[in-house]
């Protein structure tokens, strides 16, 4: 809790307002875009939960490295949420793409959707792990923790999405 209070107290009102507007706009833009394109309640709920889960995971990971490894969360870590968001958007939009492709069908094949999602998740993992891993070889602390943390959270988010698809899409839409 102390970590959040420190951040909150040390931010100026201008910073607090800007960040609040930024987060609100990002959230609304993504959710409304998905809703507009898919016109599906399930997809919208999936997007909302996915965004919230990725935000929670990012914050929890910051607290974890701060408490367990005593690492100072520097302003470099502000890049982590952006990278996580980009990876999450690749993942969410790939399922939206599948929906667009199958839009003409009256029923969406959930097994196919899950299969497609699994392939995309595997592909993202295959790219994320080697690309970030080689980056880790050439950096030292404190950058190393930042890269490792970003890699782990970015890789975890598509798998969380995959489990969400399993949980939310248990019957055909």
């Amino acid at each position: 809790m102390e970590i959040f209070l420190n951040v909150w107290n040390n931010w100026s009102l201008y910073q607090k307002v800007t960040i609040a507007i930024l987060l609100t706009l990002l959230f609304l833009t993504i959710v409304l875009s998905v809703k507009f394109v898919t016109k599906s309640k399930q997809y919208t709920i999936f997007t909302i939960i996915s965004l919230i889960m990725s935000a929670i995971l990012t914050i929890v990971s910051f607290v974890f490295v701060n408490v367990v490894f005593n690492t100072t969360i520097t302003y470099m870590y502000m890049l982590t949420p952006i990278i996580v968001l980009i990876i999450n958007l690749f993942n969410i939009s790939s399922s939206v793409g599948f929906y667009i492709k199958n839009k003409k069908q009256k029923k969406l094949d959930i097994d196919e959707l899950k299969k497609e999602f699994l392939i995309d998740t595997v592909h993202l993992t295959v790219f994320l792990i080697p690309l970030f891993s080689v980056f880790c070889i050439f950096v030292t602390e404190p950058l190393l923790t930042f890269i490792l943390l970003t890699m782990l959270v970015s890789t975890a988010v598509p798998w969380i999405n995959y489990s969400l698809i399993y949980w939310l899409f248990h019957k055909n839409v």
Partner: peptide, 19 residues
Amino acid sequence: MFEENKESRKFTLGILLLS
């Protein structure tokens, strides 16, 4: 991802650029 998911390329690009 753009090459693999051609059907969602425009949507992905649009939403990413907007964000």
